[in-house]
């Protein structure tokens, strides 16, 4: 199967197989007008199988979202058909408006326009907790 290479845009690479749709949703890519290709189960020497997302536009991708989903993801920036930058993401210390607190007693359920903020409290087990009520995020 061939998908055209992009001239200007972004390739999100090394996505764990099966996670590209969740990433597509969390990055809000459904709202873009440009071409977006999701490649599932591509063969990878490093990972066996991987997913990729190609976006034919130079948009700002939320690296925190990528890092939260999988810190092994890489982001390739393409200009004039050339790879100009390879960005590695990391587990973000703080996530703003990515996750929603599920605690019905949390202040975020009633306070007007309050950002949903989660902090990384345990990098080993990848535990995020609500900044306000400290409820653990559901992964």
């Amino acid at each position: 199967m061939n998908i055209d290479s992009i001239k200007n845009g972004i390739v999100v690479d090394h996505i764990r197989s099966g996670e590209s749709m969740e990433l597509y949703r969390m990055l809000g890519l459904d709202e873009l007008d440009c071409q977006v290709a999701i490649i599932k189960n591509a063969v990878s020497r490093k990972m066996g199988r991987k997913d990729m997302i190609k976006i034919a536009a130079d948009i700002d991708v939320d690296l925190d979202v990528l890092g939260y989903i999988d810190p092994n993801i890489t982001v390739n920036i393409i200009r004039n058909g050339e790879l100009v930058e390879k960005r590695h993401v990391e587990l973000p210390r703080r996530l703003t408006n990515v996750l929603k607190c599920k605690n019905p007693r949390c202040i975020t359920t009633v306070e007007q326009e309050l950002d949903q903020v989660f902090l990384l409290t345990d990098p080993v087990d990848r535990v995020y907790r609500c900044l306000y009520c400290e409820t653990k995020a559901e992964s």
Partner: peptide, 28 residues
Amino acid sequence: SVADTVRTVSCYADIIAMRHPKEGAPRV
């Protein structure tokens, strides 16, 4: 909102003690 109430009260008092049924309200 809690934020607006506190901004107002900050104009009148020197220190606040807050009890709230919602968890995290004092942090806000």
